[in-house]
Design a protein around this nucleic acid. Structure first.
Lengths: 148, 148
DNA sequence: TATTGTTATACTCTATAACTATA
DNA sequence: TATAGTTATAGAGTATAACAATA
């Protein structure tokens, strides 16, 4: 029942009706609280941009369509995200050796540097928001979340 | 490890790097999967609009600022959401007896009807996406999610 | 034919800043 | 002074539809 970033998870003076019964909404409220802490913790990158940055770092040469599938967004959306990362000089669209239609996505030197900084920031953020859970509880939660 | 709506939760051929360590990202991925099922299940209302509709039904006369606080958004944002619910003739801004600055939000007759329909839809949706969890697991998950 | 990237376009969610009426 | 609502504006994320290049 922690308050994260001033967002009161389940205020007692409000009726939630059906929302209080939905596990999907419980996940959504946790996500809102976590997002508010993320904003204060990770400088200059939104959650989708950081996710893309980390995924490209971990999968160098991945193409846009595949990255979009992994992130759960379509080609036009991943296009916009890569455009922004490219404008920030963090990601480069290199030609793919295997498929001349595709871009092989890579981090730039600056991108690798930024990846290191943002990793430290998001790591600290995640530890903070999970601070009310024991290691055992976290393991259980992670396990249950894979079932969706 | 269910696939919900064609979104593959943790594809095995992709490295997730640091993302795989973050409980916040695990929650985000579950939320993406659930959202994709929501879209197919609840007709004509987005998650924020349905949340507002249910909260107004459960707290008739609530004002916009308080509703925004409960939902975790600011006054300008709740304004836009109520504008859309009002344009759909689902919600009415009634004058507040206690405070002439405030709107007492209420469902219209059509709003109550829509609330009933959407409740059935979202209930079925939630049961479907939670189908891989036992009642005991769901209870544990709900408990752990309150800790953020 | 199918797929990758791209562009044009539009909609939703969200916020900041400034204004007004009222408290 | 402070708060509730409002308006104007902007940015980010998301999608659909169409097109060119390549598979």
């Amino acid at each position: 029942m922690a308050k994260t970033g001033g967002f009161e998870q389940w205020p007692a003076d409000v009726e939630f009706g059906l929302l209080g019964e939905l596990v999907g909404y419980a996940i959504r409220r946790a996500q809102i609280a976590i997002y508010k802490d993320f904003e204060k913790s990770v400088t200059g990158l939104t959650p989708p941009l950081l996710a893309a940055l980390i995924l490209i770092d971990a999968n160098p040469g991945i193409n846009q369509t595949r990255l979009g599938q992994v992130m759960g967004v379509n080609r036009a959306t991943i296009m916009a995200l890569i455009d922004r990362l490219a404008a920030l000089k963090l990601v480069r669209r290199a030609p793919s050796a295997a498929d001349r239609r595709a871009n092989a996505l890579q981090l730039t030197d600056l991108g690798r540097k930024r990846h290191g900084i943002a990793s430290a920031e998001v790591w600290a953020h995640d530890a903070r928001v999970a601070g009310n859970l024991t290691p055992s509880e976290l393991k259980t939660l992670r396990h249950l979340l894979t079932k969706f």
